[in-house]
């Protein structure tokens, strides 16, 4: 049985309009490229933005996944790769949205400030199922290291995902699934 056997929305990461049409609570199967970045990668990206330095990848229109995967076992595309707690990134989310990030994937609540920023930038916050790292690994079809290799599991990787199961946590109008 498929996890989402009804009413899911098939979504491509590169589509523009469809993101703003999403509503909190919608179930989505996402296909395309997403970029992992958690605590230390955020810190580095923000320092670069502040100094006006060249970013290792263009943040415009990208989707950031709060994730630090395990090492990749032989014959696998990626190791366990579920979301980490989003709230730790709350204080660092503003500059990334300013730089054009259009969506974030994580788990748990966001601050009121972040909810406001998401609305302002017409971005989206998605929830992935925490602790389902082996399950989610099945939906990743390729991995490419992009930046900050020295951070190990906290480095930035580009994941190409297919039908990655998500739930809309905060939509572009600022509706929050946890504040209903």
């Amino acid at each position: 049985m498929s996890f989402f056997n009804d009413n899911f929305i098939k979504l491509l990461t590169r589509s523009k309009d469809e993101f703003s049409g999403l509503r909190a609570g919608d179930e989505v199967l996402l296909t395309g490229d997403i970029y992992t970045a958690r605590d230390q990668a955020h810190k580095k990206l923000i320092e670069l933005i502040r100094k006006g330095g060249k970013l290792p990848f263009d943040l415009k229109g990208q989707i950031i996944y709060y994730c630090g995967p395990t090492k990749t076992p032989p014959m696998r595309v990626i190791g366990s790769c579920g979301p980490t707690t989003s709230a730790r990134m709350d204080k660092m989310t503003g500059p990334l949205l300013e730089a054009g990030v259009k969506a974030m994937i994580g788990k748990g609540r966001r601050s009121e400030e972040v909810r406001g920023l998401i609305k302002k930038h017409k971005a989206v916050y998605f929830l992935a199922t925490g602790g389902a790292g082996a399950y989610l690994a099945k939906r990743v079809i390729s991995v490419k290291p992009v930046a900050f290799k020295e951070l190990g599991p906290e480095a930035v990787y580009r994941l190409r995902v297919k039908d990655f199961p998500l739930i809309v946590g905060i939509d572009s109008q600022g509706n929050d699934i946890f504040r209903k």
Binding site: G68, P69, S80, G130, G133, A137
Partner: peptide
């Protein structure tokens, strides 16, 4: 899946 694929349950 974790058991079958020998992948950690959680990252």
């Amino acid at each position: 899946i974790a058991k079958a694929d020998r992948v950690a349950l959680c990252q």
